[in-house]
Amino acid sequence: MKIIVDENMPYAYELFSRTGKVLSVPGRELSKIELKDTIGLMVRSITNVNAKLLDNTSIKFVGTATSGTEHIDYHVLKKKGISFSSAPGCNSIAVVEYIFSVLFFLAERDGFDLRNRIVGIIGAGNIGNCLNKRLKVLGVETLICDPPRKNRGDKEIFYSLDELVAKADILTFHTPLFIDGLYKSWHLVDINLLNSLKKNTILINTCRGSVVDNKALLQILTMRKDISVILDVWEEEPNISLELLNKIDIATPHIAGYTLEGKTRGTIQIFESWCNFIDKPQQIILENLLPKPEFSTITLHGNIDQYKLKRLIHLIYDVRRDDTLLRKLTAIDHIDFDLLRAQYQERREWSSLQVICDNTETVTILNKLGFNATLQ
């Protein structure tokens, strides 16, 4: 039984080899020739799974080790009778910790207390909900915009996007990409919205590049210097705009969800679905696959405050590392976007670090935030 897996899926070869012959391939360059005699196809977001790829193949199962599925043509899969599995929520923690790294960097650079800022969260799915909960632990006021959830009657207070633009100091986007329809999100951030932003607004996009009109954003940034912009996702990936990159505050190559834990969760989720599909169920425990982290234990004394939390967060992951790597390549007018992702330095989640504390309140706060904190 032949199975193809994206070469950037950690532990995919080891796991799927238990059930058949595995071939690891670059996801963006996948060809029909490689699909010959293949039963299972395991991809990430850079592989468009459509009729062009699947016609005249023997594929019976497609899995994507991602929470987003915009690269998958469901209609084609259904028409061909191909089973499908995704990995919803696998990278939620990773993306949220990326955003915290960004916010604490900006808070220190610009000299503000995060509790004095209102955060508008557009899209309250797995990632948006996780972010909302962690911000509330710190006492940060949040506003939620999620029209699909509001329309189905979910019992939360929802605001319109216009209300968020008018009230929030920070806007962070976590929506699927819908090209049209009632919940269209393509170019949701357009020239009109950008013109309406409050002074000193922070704009963060970690969902899909086309949610933000990159050309309109570039136009606005040539006129307004007060807006802080963080982009992890871009239009036209991997051929991103160097001009735009050089005008924003933090630029990274679509790696917000790239913790080792997050990527491995994605692999495990579709592997277990694949095993159910072939009627050989297996259950994989995440911790049994992962290596020991570079830093495993630290002692923290006294109450936790913004300064201490910022240092703790950046000990595990400082977003400026990835921003610097991306910008270095602009010096030679060339960005190998996919290479940066393929050779991404191992990054761990907060839970990988045991924090030993001598303050009960600090332990409570850190554990609610997702750290592994214990009382000394």
Rank of each mutant, 00 (worst) to 15 (best):
K225E: 14
K225F: 10
K225L: 10
D226R: 03
I227C: 07
I227M: 09
S228E: 09
S228C: 13
S228P: 00
V229M: 02
V229A: 01
I230A: 00
I230R: 00
L231D: 01
L231E: 03
L231C: 04
D232G: 03
W234K: 01
E235A: 06
E235T: 04
E235M: 09
E236Q: 14
E237S: 08
P238M: 12
P238H: 10
N239A: 12
I240F: 01
L242G: 09
E243K: 12
E243P: 05
L244Y: 08
L245D: 00
L245E: 03
N246R: 13
N246Y: 02
K247L: 14
I248N: 07
I248V: 12
I248A: 07
I248G: 11
D249I: 06
D249V: 09
A251C: 04
T252L: 08
T252N: 07
T252D: 06
P253E: 09
H254C: 07
I255F: 10
A256D: 08
Y258H: 14
T259C: 09
L260T: 00
L260D: 01
E261M: 03
E261Q: 14
E261G: 00
G262D: 03
K263F: 08
K263R: 09
K263T: 02
R265P: 12
R265A: 08
G266C: 07
T267H: 05
I270N: 02
I270A: 03
F271H: 06
F271Q: 01
E272L: 10
S273Q: 12
S273D: 14
C275P: 06
N276Q: 13
F277H: 14
I278G: 06
I278A: 06
K280S: 14
P281H: 03
P281F: 01
P281V: 04
Q283W: 05
Q283N: 13
Q283P: 00
I285Y: 07
I285R: 07
L286Y: 04
L286M: 05
E287W: 00
N288D: 15
N288E: 15
N288F: 02
L290T: 10
K292N: 13
K292R: 13
P293Y: 02
P293M: 01
P293Q: 01
F295Q: 11
S296Y: 08
S296N: 11
S296R: 11
T297F: 15
T297K: 15
T299S: 15
T299F: 15
N303H: 12
I304C: 11
D305V: 05
Q306M: 13
Q306G: 06
Y307I: 15
Y307G: 00
K308W: 08
K308C: 05
L309P: 05
